[in-house]
């Protein structure tokens, strides 16, 4: 038997305090403990990037992080991307460019792309493709996703 761990963290600008099993991934913690189900499970072994969230300013695969690790940290998930005013420009561009089909990979792509554009607003196509290499899509074939990111840059 192991004891639950007490975690205090900031998610999408909001304070959270909860108990979590010490062996539970951040992905499971977000989805099953905090009911933040926007973050998706794909491979659950660090290959597909569907579960990408931003943790302390860097994108990570939340399946390869323990929920207990985020104590004192800052997390941004897809739930924090749109505001009351409307969709984030990347979300809007994904819609307009049809950069999604089944949608399982989309929250991860959006979080990754947002992180890139915040760091490197002028990233070229090669850089965008490299940055998004850790996100797999099995429907659209990537070109539409890349175009959506470029459209966001062009309209920024």
């Amino acid at each position: 038997m192991v004891d639950k761990v007490h975690v205090k963290t900031t998610i999408n600008g909001q304070e959270y305090e909860f108990l979590v099993e010490p062996y539970m991934s951040l992905l499971e913690t977000l989805r099953d403990v905090l009911n933040l189900t926007g973050t998706k499970e794909g491979c659950n072994d660090g290959n597909c990037g569907a579960c990408t969230v931003e943790m302390n300013g860097r994108i990570v695969d939340s399946c390869c992080v323990l929920g207990a690790e985020v104590n004192g940290g800052t997390i941004n998930t897809i739930e924090g991307m749109a505001t009351a005013e409307g969709l984030h420009p990347l979300q809007q561009a994904f819609l307009e460019e049809a950069a999604l089909q089944c949608g399982i990979c989309t929250p991860g792509f959006l979080i990754s792309a947002k992180s890139l554009l915040e760091r490197e607003p002028d990233a070229d196509e090669h850089r965008i493709r490299y940055w998004l290499a850790g996100n797999l899509c099995r429907c659209t074939g990537y070109d539409k996703i890349i175009k959506a990111v470029q459209k966001t840059q062009a309209t920024a």
Partner: peptide
């Protein structure tokens, strides 16, 4: 190694 997500950790 891996993608940016892996390199972050």
């Amino acid at each position: 190694i891996g993608g940016i997500q892996i390199q972050s950790r």
